[in-house]
């Protein structure tokens, strides 16, 4: 679906993308996870044909997005794009604008079904400027998927959502995946990547530092557990692959109950923060 090799892009002296390799398979949800300014949006905008790259090769659905002219029409017919923060189309009604966008594509989805799928049926005759932030974002998705895309780009889709709206949004994205759409998602929310993605690439300072499934990210499944307890001299701790053995040893040592015994494993967040070197806000 997507094949990227050695991708770079600089703005003046600033290296936004500093050599990225990526392969995204058909049917998966792939998350680009990283702090603000890591190069996620630049990468997506290059893949979606909005920006030219400095170097590297990019293949999206068998097409080079940097191709100029009308050749891009057939390609854009097969992709859907949801960018960050648009405030346009305020004076159109929801159904009006979705219907209008459906006319751009060769094989669009049914307008009312799409409005239903994004949960805007009750708002179909409302003006776009009357929508809440979350509803507007769902309209963005409706406009992104109306063309029945094989591949959908979602750039930070849930920024500014309340928890309930995010859950509803996630379930919409899962439905799209179930319908066979391949999705490239950028996010700086770890839980979003964990919740949705089949694979996650952690990106920071324009480079991908790891590509993995959420469960294996940062060696999480094999990370050592930390056993801690109280000694007369203060809290002691020991990192171990075999924490049960450590606890047995301690139990024998204390002759029963171990004071303030705790066993902790690193959360995905701990691992992520360690990976990006504490750069996130």
């Amino acid at each position: 679906m997507i094949e990227v090799k050695g991708l770079t892009k600089s703005y003046g002296d600033f290296k936004a993308v500093a050599g990225i390799d990526l392969t995204i398979e058909a049917g998966e949800i792939f998350a680009l996870l990283g702090p603000n300014g890591a190069g996620k949006t630049t990468t997506v905008e290059i893949l979606a044909g909005f920006r030219d790259r400095d170097a590297g090769s990019v293949n999206v659905l068998g097409f080079d997005p940097a191709t100029k002219g009308d050749a891009g029409r057939a390609w854009r017919n097969r992709i859907g794009i949801v960018l960050q923060s648009a405030s346009d189309a305020g004076s159109f009604k929801v159904r009006e604008i979705v219907k209008h966008f459906s006319a751009f594509y060769a094989n669009p989805r049914d307008v009312d079904q799409v409005i239903e799928a994004v949960g805007l049926s009750e708002k179909r005759d409302s003006l776009v400027l009357e929508l809440s932030g979350g509803q507007r974002r769902r309209l963005d998705v409706a406009l992104g998927i109306i063309g029945n895309p094989e591949l959908l780009f979602l750039d930070e889709p849930t920024t500014g959502f309340d928890p309930e709206a995010r859950r509803a949004f996630w379930s919409l994205i899962r439905d799209l995946k179930a319908g066979g759409t391949t999705i490239l998602l950028t996010t700086h929310y770890l839980d979003e990547a964990e919740e949705l993605a089949d694979r996650v690439a952690v990106i920071t300072a324009g480079k991908i530092i790891e590509v993995s499934t959420p469960a294996l990210l940062g060696g999480r499944s094999t990370a050592k557990a930390t056993v801690s307890w109280m000694e007369p001299t203060g809290i002691q701790s020991e990192a171990s692959d075999i924490p049960t053995a450590v606890v047995n040893k301690l139990a024998a040592q204390f002759g029963g109950e171990v004071p303030e015994l705790a066993i902790t494993r690193p959360s995905l967040e701990d691992i992520y923060l360690k990976m990006i070197g504490g750069q996130d806000e």
Binding site: G49, G72, R76, I81, A86, S87, F101, L143
Partner: peptide, 11 residues
């Protein structure tokens, strides 16, 4: 407002 960029992403 991002209107033209949105159109640019369509066919």
């Amino acid at each position: 407002m991002g209107a033209i960029k949105r159109l640019r992403g369509t066919p």
